[in-house]
């Protein structure tokens, strides 16, 4: 059993924190794991991505081959589309809906979302708006992780929640609680839309 996850977003959006939580949960669960990250220049407001590979058997390549990602988790809708050639035929895209426009030639939003929605398995939500409304402005990435949790299959949502607790523990109880609340919001969104 394996789970290949492409994480994407724009530098500074917090995709590496999502990777850290999944990595923590996977390690605690005794799964094999490799996680290729992007550091350095591209973190300055450019596109960033991380390949996270989980398995019950040892993982060979640090990079996910084309057409094999079971899941794309993206903090930004165009950045989700960027990695489509990596998505497996029955793969799922879990993404934030709100475009981050920091380039002059950003595509038409309606066309972009239509292209996303035409994919076989997509869950998307304006996580920044939800985070703001719920008073969790710094936890949008954990809403997204909650949305993706039902698709991780090798890890149960409870295992991820425990990992959220451990990863944020040193920032204090309030931060842990905010991130757990955010996670649960995302999780219930996916349960609702997939009914």
């Amino acid at each position: 059993m394996k789970r290949d996850i492409k994480l994407s977003g724009v530098g500074g959006q917090g995709i590496l924190t999502i990777a850290t939580v999944i990595g923590e949960a996977a390690t605690a669960a005794g799964l094999y794991l490799k996680q290729a990250e992007v550091h350095g220049m591209s973190q300055r407001g450019g596109d960033v991505q991380s390949d996270l590979r989980l398995g019950t058997e040892p993982v060979c390549s640090d990079l996910i081959p084309l057409g094999q990602a079971d899941l794309i988790i993206s903090m930004e809708p165009m950045e989700a589309l960027r990695y489509l050639p990596y998505l497996a035929p029955d793969g799922t895209v879990v993404t934030a809906s709100r475009p981050l426009v920091n380039i002059p030639d950003y595509p038409d939003e309606t066309a972009l979302l239509a292209e996303l929605d035409a994919l076989p398995h997509v869950v998307r939500l304006d996580i920044e708006a939800v985070a703001r409304e719920q008073g969790l402005p710094k936890s949008a990435n954990m809403i997204l992780l909650g949305m993706a949790a039902p698709f991780l299959s090798l890890l149960r949502p409870e295992q991820l929640q425990e990992a959220v607790g451990r990863v944020f523990a040193r920032k204090g109880e309030a931060v842990v609680q905010a991130n757990l609340d955010a996670f649960r919001l995302g999780l219930s969104h996916t349960y609702q839309v997939s009914k």
Partner: peptide, 17 residues
Amino acid sequence: SAATFPPAHNLAVRPPQ
């Protein structure tokens, strides 16, 4: 290799800044 989905249409390069 097995890419099922072709590259997306609504895509622009996003260089660092």
